[in-house]
Design a binder for these strands. Structure first.
Lengths: 220, 220
DNA sequence: TGCAAATACGAGTCATCACTCGTATTTTAG
DNA sequence: CTAAAATACGAGTGATGACTCGTATTTGCA
């Protein structure tokens, strides 16, 4: 009963070989492309397998069904997003003035979203099956909870309900601008990102306490 | 060659009877429900026909294909949206102070969107076929162009490019909050709508010239 | 009243697709 | 070296769903 392999899970836990891990990664890469192009609903599992240079049978050796593919892909995205700007680093951001803070948060997220169109495709699809919605949730929570914590540090006096609403609204505001961010051609991107920050800054500064005045000269 | 029925269109223009118009309306009502529940991709034409109390054959007597249903539905929504707050009335809104203006614009739109979940379902679906995207466009243009005109009146000095960007961003900000607006339970709605207005007001007031001071007392 | 057009039906067609299964090959453990 | 486990294949299966078509009924019009 105390063996290390004793999992009460019903899944027949196979020992994965290195080859298998690699295949899974290839399949997820392919899935990301196909989802980005077709969206989850229209994407076909056979197309994913083909793009990965695998057969349908192989695909189903690693993923129970189509949804499991999206879930695994999402999980990978969440991991990568966490890595992209590490957890510890994040809370320090609350010490910065609003404008600098937004730079630090938004730039990496924009870069990540543009580098991973499959992530955007899954995240922005409003009618995914309930199971998939739950796969989406961690990704949304990720941003929401971080902002919530940052706001808590930046405005300790704010009542929690108000703070939570603010964080939620801010995340949705950003998501609203994501289509513009994703669609922008490279040269137009800075303009769009700048406007995004302006909008968020305008909104947040109505909720946050006024910033302490900055000395224009050097701080030495 | 100058007959009133001389249309170079390839469509075999049938004479529609009153019964036919009614059927089309019923089918569009059913389609709206099914799209709202399942989304466009998962919605089945047979389900739409069944919900309308019609047969598949009847459905295809009125609509060339599934996309045509969504296009017709969108066209109907755009018409209704135009009616909801008439064109002429709209420009007068630019004379109001920002806060009152947002009340006048946002309240009807929120009411419309909540009353027509099918509209939201089509509008928020990011991967519709290209033809459908073009059916969506008028709906998006509707809000964008109106805002653009209003901004032009409210801030004549603003360079057109800047004004257009502002209008586009504002519309996207609103769309970003739509999921919250749609998901809110009736009692929570005012809170969400209020926050929506706060966000838009904050953003727009950074672009618009400062408002003339209002006299707090009565104007008499 | 009678006929042509419009409306209505729904079983059937055909393509697509998620997923399976029998089998063949490669890897790892002993 | 060998057997079991893991990986790989891809034709096949069953379900679903968009759309058709032959036919029946209703309506508008002369």
């Amino acid at each position: 009963m105390t063996e290390d392999t004793a999992k009460p899970v019903s899944r027949p836990v196979k020992k994965r070989q290195a080859r298998g891990e690699k295949r899974m990664a290839e399949l997820l890469d392919a899935a990301a492309e196909v989802f980005a192009e077709q969206g989850f609903a229209k994407a076909s599992t056979n197309a994913i397998a083909a793009k990965a240079g695998a057969s349908p049978g192989t695909l189903y050796q690693f993923f129970e069904n189509k949804e499991a593919i999206a879930e695994a892909l999402m999980a990978r995205y969440v991991t990568r997003l966490r890595e992209a700007h590490g957890e510890a680093f994040d809370l320090a951001v609350a010490e910065l003035p609003l404008e600098a803070m937004l730079d630090r948060i938004i730039d990496p997220v924009v870069a990540f979203d543009r580098a991973n169109p499959g992530f955007y495709a899954l995240l922005s699809d409003p009618q995914l099956a309930p199971e998939l919605a739950s796969a989406k949730r961690p990704a949304q929570k990720l941003m929401f909870e971080r902002l919530d914590k940052i706001l808590e540090k930046k405005a300790p006096g704010l009542p929690p309900e108000k703070r939570t609403l603010t964080a939620e609204v801010a995340v949705h505001l950003f998501r609203g601008l994501l289509p513009m961010i994703m669609a922008a051609e490279e040269p137009d991107l800075p303009k769009v990102v700048k406007e995004t920050k302006r909008a968020l800054r305008a909104y947040l500064s109505t909720t946050l306490p006024p910033e302490p005045r900055r000395i224009t000269g050097s701080g030495a």
